Amino acid sequence: MKKQPVLITDAARSQADQLRSREIRYVTMMMVRALCLILGGVLISLRVPLLPVWLVLCAAAMVFLPWAAVLIANDRPPKSKAERAADAAAREDVRRALIQQTVQPTSEPITIDSEVVTESKQQT
């Protein structure tokens, strides 16, 4: 049996690892949905007591599971405290830069003159 290496870093899981785990969760949920369909067919053929209740539960699972599976498959792992702190620091830097630009303009304002200068006025 192959042993997993010991994790000695705070680095996040690779994108490939994250994708693989999301794919496994998605396929598992879709398999449960398929089992609900098969179970509904078996329940109808066996004519079990409380059949409508069981069929409603199977149908609800078959409607809810695809929606939940897509949401879970498209979700990323939660950010760590360090990632959240780095994001907050970056937002603060951007905010300070924007405030500094609005307080101290970097160039002279442009003035547009509306007077039309003709050649005869230039010679006098």
Rank of each mutant, 00 (worst) to 15 (best):
W54H: 01
K81Q: 14
V70G: 02
V42I: 08
N74K: 11
L55F: 06
L65G: 01
V48K: 08
K79I: 01
S45D: 08
R84V: 04
S45N: 12
A60D: 00
L50T: 00
V63Q: 06
G40V: 00
P78C: 05
S80I: 05
F64S: 13
L50H: 03
R76Q: 02
P77I: 12
A59Q: 11
A85I: 08
K81C: 08
V53F: 14
L71T: 08
R47H: 14
K81G: 15
S45M: 12
L57D: 12
L55P: 04
S80H: 07
P77T: 14
G40T: 04
P78G: 05
V48E: 11
R84T: 04
F64Y: 12
K79C: 00
W67N: 13
V63Y: 09
L50A: 01
G40P: 06
V53I: 14
I72F: 10
S45L: 13
K79F: 07
S80K: 10
G41Y: 03
R47S: 14
W54V: 01
K81E: 15
L51W: 09
A61T: 08
L51K: 03
N74H: 08
A73K: 14
L55A: 00
L51Q: 12
W54K: 02
F64T: 07
L51V: 02
I44M: 13
L65P: 05
W54Y: 06
D75K: 15
A73T: 01
V56L: 13
V63M: 12
G41C: 02
A68H: 11
P66Y: 08
M62E: 05
S45C: 07
V48D: 07
L55W: 06
P66T: 07
S45K: 11
L50W: 01
D75R: 15
L71A: 04
V42A: 05
V70F: 04
P52S: 06
A68W: 12
L39N: 10
A59P: 07
I72K: 11
C58S: 03
V53N: 06
M62T: 10
W54L: 00
L39R: 09
K79Y: 08
I72T: 13
W54A: 00
W67C: 13
I72W: 11
L46R: 03
P78L: 11
P49R: 03
G40S: 03
K81N: 13
A61R: 01
R84C: 05
